[in-house]
Design a binder for these strands. Sequence first.
DNA 1: AAGGGCCTCAACCGCGTGACT
DNA 2: TAGTCACGCGGTTGAGGCCCT
Length: 313
Amino acid sequence: MDVNGILCSSATQSDEDMMDLRRGPWTVEEDLILINYIANHGEGRWNSLARYAGLKRTGKSCRLRWLNYLRPDVRRGNITLEEQLLILELHSRWGNRWSKIAQHLPGRTDNEIKNYWRTRVQKHAKQLQCDVNSKRFKDTMRLVWMPRLVERIRAAAASASSTSTNSTITTQHITNNPKFPNNFVTGQILPTSRNEEFGVVAQFNPSFTPEENSSSGAASSDLFGTQVSPVSDLTTDYYNFPPTNCSDGFQSGSMQGSYADCLTSPIAYFNHGLDFQAIEQNSSSSNNNVWLDGGDVSENLWNGDDIWFYSSS
DNA sequence: AAGGGCCTCAACCGCGTGACT
DNA sequence: TAGTCACGCGGTTGAGGCCCT
């Protein structure tokens, strides 16, 4: 068997389609063919693209490979804390509308977000022994995990700003920027093209090997094998949103302790100060300050110390 | 060291939708 | 209006790497 994929054929197909179609993982050569073809002819018309490019792949397969992997602005590496928060927020609003959610995470694909949700979030719903769509799980997200994420983002920003004079964007900036929550909460975040430098590497460096780009089995590394900053440059996107239509509220003090608003959006916590201790005291946990435990801010939201909640719920 | 189970994620599949004829 | 095609979306699968015993 071909180690890079399997060959399949169907006796029921036309002569043109009788040629063996490749399936399974893409090879470097196939990637380069696809990249070069799209660079010269553009994307779209995937079936004919596959045919004319000489790829023994379905148009569907080509499209998927391009959109989820080869596209220049595909962002790779760990899902950052901000992205995690955004995913939770948007999923609570839209459900499994992965493509729609992905539109608000520049460079992330629907496939990546979907995988993230299934592998991380659903796993914890399972640990909670409740359905991922159940009220109990959603409450857990809103009341525990999302506020905790916010605090982690803050902690990461504080840490970054205290250790680097080059850290120009922090969550404090966001907190002080009335435009941010407005865009965020109202779902007006605009997707922006990101990681153009990856495009340069992918398209023009002949030594580029997409397999090196694979994060499979090395989830903590990005293309260059480096950790993704916990305070991601994604934050910059939020901060730099076009300052249009941002005058309709959510100014500081506008919330005035609206607990319902807090429940609706974690960003309310983010911008108006969450009384973590109060919520903490409301839990029956004897484990104090688990949200402020100062752990590695680059770690995933869903880590071991969430167990306190399971045991106390 | 080995191997079995677990986890991640790239890739595939089926279906719905819209454009075009 | 019905048929066909291209495309996009969400669900699912399976290969390969990691981890634990």
